[in-house]
Design a protein around this nucleic acid. Sequence first.
DNA 1: GCAACTTTGTGCACACGTTCACAAGCGTCT
DNA 2: AGACGCTTGTGAACGTGTGCACAAAGTTGC
Lengths: 224, 224
Amino acid sequence: MPEATVARLPLYLRALTTLAERGVATVSSEELAASAGVNSAKLRKDLSYLGSYGTRGVGYEVDFLRHQITREIGLTQDWAVVIVGIGNLGHALANYGGFASRGFRIAALVDADPTRLGEEVAGLNVRSADDLEQIVHDLGIAIGVVATPARAAQLVCDRLVAAGVTSILNFAPAIVQVPEGVDLRKVDLSTELQILAYHEQRKNGAALALTAEQAAELAEAVNG
Amino acid sequence: MPEATVARLPLYLRALTTLAERGVATVSSEELAASAGVNSAKLRKDLSYLGSYGTRGVGYEVDFLRHQITREIGLTQDWAVVIVGIGNLGHALANYGGFASRGFRIAALVDADPTRLGEEVAGLNVRSADDLEQIVHDLGIAIGVVATPARAAQLVCDRLVAAGVTSILNFAPAIVQVPEGVDLRKVDLSTELQILAYHEQRKNGAALALTAEQAAELAEAVNG
DNA sequence: GCAACTTTGTGCACACGTTCACAAGCGTCT
DNA sequence: AGACGCTTGTGAACGTGTGCACAAAGTTGC
Ligand SMILES: NC(=O)c1ccc[n+]([C@@H]2O[C@H](COP(=O)([O-])OP(=O)(O)OC[C@H]3O[C@@H](n4cnc5c(N)ncnc54)[C@H](O)[C@@H]3O)[C@@H](O)[C@H]2O)c1
Ligand SMILES: NC(=O)c1ccc[n+]([C@@H]2O[C@H](COP(=O)([O-])OP(=O)(O)OC[C@H]3O[C@@H](n4cnc5c(N)ncnc54)[C@H](O)[C@@H]3O)[C@@H](O)[C@H]2O)c1
C-alpha cells in the first residue's frame, strides 16, 4: 500500500466516524471525498487497496468501511504509548482526551528531572527515565512520544529503541537517527510556521510588485 | 520553487544554525546533508533554487547561506502570531520559547470561554474572540494558530480570514475550508500516531508470519 | 426483463519529486 | 603554469503520486 494512501486512511476514518454519528448508513465516494477534503478518484483508488468494499450504483456502507479501515490501520487493538519529557508539551499531550478515542492509551509518563518524579499528571505518576526499559517491557509499549528538549532527543530515542520501542513520534526540533526497523516520524511546529511565512512573504512580495507596477503606470501617466 | 524544497529549507536553516554555533565556517553539501538527514544531491538541487551560492571544490559558507535561506523564507522580519483557543495545547504553545528565536512572536491569545478572559499566560492577557478583528488589525497579524476543539475550527478560521489573516496553522482534527489566497496547514497528532500504528501492525504481522513459517518447519520436523 | 441511471474500480497520461552520475569550476601544490 | 583533487550544479532516468475518463457492474422503475 502506497505511503500516501496510508497517510490518508486516518482522514477517511475520521470522516466516516462523523458520518456514522450523524446516522448516515451509506456514502458515495463523491460525498466521502468532500468530507475528507480530497479528490474522489483518489479516494476510490485509496479504498481499492483495501479491497472492493463498495457497491456500484450505491456507494460504501459507512460502518463496514469504518471497520475495514480500523482493521487495516491496526486500531482494533489499543496501543500503549509512553511520553518522555513532561514539560509544557508533555503535559498537554498527557491531558489530551482525543488519543484514547482513537486507539491510543497513554500508559506511562517519563521525565529526567528529579523534581518532577512522582508528580501526578492525567492520573499517572511521572516516572524516572532510568526505569524506561522496565516500563516499556512491563506495559508492552511499542510507541514512544518524545517531548524533551532537542539536545536530549537522540539520547532518549536511543534509550527507547534499546528498551524495545519500534515506533517514535518526535516533537523535538532535532535530527535523530534510528536503526533499520524502527519507524520515526516528527512533528515540527516551527517548520510549519516557517513554511507559512515563506508563502506569506511571497503574497506580500506580489503585492509590492503590483505596487511597483502601479507606480510605473503612475509615472507614465505623469510623464505622458 | 518546489513545495518540497520550501518544506526542507527550515531544516537546512536549523542545521546551519547548529554548525554556526559550533564555529564552523564552511560546509560541504555532503556534511550539511548529513546534518539535515537528507540526500546530498537533493540538498544541492534545493540550494540551487536560491542561486549559485556554493564554491566548487570548497562548499558553502555557513553564515552566508544561513542569511540567504533566512531571507528566502522571509524570516528577516518577525511575524506576529495569534493563538486562538487557550486550552491544554494553547497554553503549551504560548509558553513555548522556541518560536521567538525562529522569527515568530506570539502577539495575542484569544479564547471564547468568558472564564478564561483576562487570564495571564506567558505575559499576555487572554482576550475575547469578539475582539479578533480589532486585534488582528492593530497588531498587524498575518498568521493564526487554531487550537480550539474541532467543532469550532471552521468558525474560528472563517473569523480569522474575515479579520485579515492569510495563513493558518490548524491543530484541530477537522477539515476546514478557506478561500483562495489563504494558506492552511494542519498538524494532526492522532493521524501521526495512526500511521505509526499501521507500520507497527505490519511489523507484528511479519513477525507472526515468521512464526507461522517456523511452526510449519516445526511440524515438518515432527512429521519427517 | 429491459432500459435508464448511478457509482465503483482502474487503465492511462501527466506532474512532481528523487537520485545517479558527471562535466564544469575552484583551490592547492609542485 | 599546469596537473591534480575536490565539490558544486544539473541533465537525465527513474519512481511515486494524482486525476481524468470510462468500462463494468450494480440499482431502480416500468
Ligand atoms: N511547547 C510547545 O508548544 C512546543 C512547540 C514546538 C516544539 N516543541 C518542542 O517540544 C519539546 C518539548 O517542549 P516543552 O515546551 O515541553 O519543553 P520543556 O522544557 O517544558 O519540557 C521538557 C521536559 O523534558 C524533560 N527532559 C529533559 N531531558 C530529558 C531526558 N533526557 N529524559 C527525559 N526527560 C527529559 C525536562 O525535565 C522537561 O520536563 C522541545 O524540544 C520543544 O522544542 C514544543
Ligand atoms: N492537547 C493536545 O495535546 C492535543 C493533541 C492533538 C490534538 N489536539 C487538538 O487541539 C485542539 C485543542 O486541544 P486542547 O487539548 O487544548 O483542548 P481544550 O479543550 O483544552 O482547549 C480548547 C480551548 O478552545 C477554546 N474555544 C472553544 N471554542 C472556541 C471558539 N469558538 N473561539 C475561541 N476559543 C474557543 C476553549 O474555551 C478552550 O479554552 C483540539 O482540537 C484537539 O483535538 C490537542
